[in-house]
Amino acid sequence: MTAILQTQKLRVEYRSREFRQSTKTALVGLDLEVNAGEVFGFLGPNGAGKTTTMNVLLGFIPPTSGGASLFGIDVRQPIARQRIGYLPELTYYYKFLTAEELLRFYAKIFGLTRSETDKRIAELLKLVELEHAAKRPIKSYSKGMQQRVGLAQSLINNPDLLILDEPTSGLDPLGRMKVREIIQRLKDTGKTVFFSSHELGEVETVCDRVAIVHQGELKAVGTVAEVSAGHDNLEKAFLKIVGFQTSPLP
């Protein structure tokens, strides 16, 4: 197995805004490896360090110490992101552009030729079922349509690794099913998918391996069966790992 996403003793500290607290630690020596061809679920409660990890992997913030690499290239090098696709949790695109213009813009950034771009745009608009709205400005799209444009832009370069930040957040059941279907299809074509989610049922369905982080530390990593061993399901295992205890209602 080849690890294409790696973090080594990754530590991230933020300058705290709270009085008398100089720094706040978001990640404490995180070691993570994601192998080629697997669907990897990255789990943790809010504030666990999932987003910080993604921010480091995408070069948005520098690590305080330790390192991270994509395809063996340090994430601080922009070229490390040549073979990845990223879908943010919410839709953040130029709303004055049409879906086709947005995809053309990103294709140009990846250096695709005109014929490659035309072919790829047609394929992706078909995949996300937006052919009919390709020439409409994104600002006129519904939330679900905007999320689908997001998915299309993340696939424009035919990435080998897809990083998805809560891809089904805010989608209706049909939209969720569609995203799951696309993840499965990507897996079938040998792509690697790294995604964070709070939907544990969904993670159980599509993931080969999962990691659970809590308070900036890696608490568990392994196949869904390995992590859920001794528990009824992944949700129970997750709650136990993050130290949540149920108490009877008053």
Binding site: G59, P78, R81, Q82, P88, Y93, Y106, I109, F110, Q153
Partner: peptide, 17 residues
């Protein structure tokens, strides 16, 4: 503010670009 910088910098684009 519109957070369009995130999908942009997630591509092989440097801040210098």
């Amino acid at each position: 503010e519109a957070r369009t910088i995130f999908p942009l910098l997630a591509k092989p684009v440097s801040r210098g670009h």
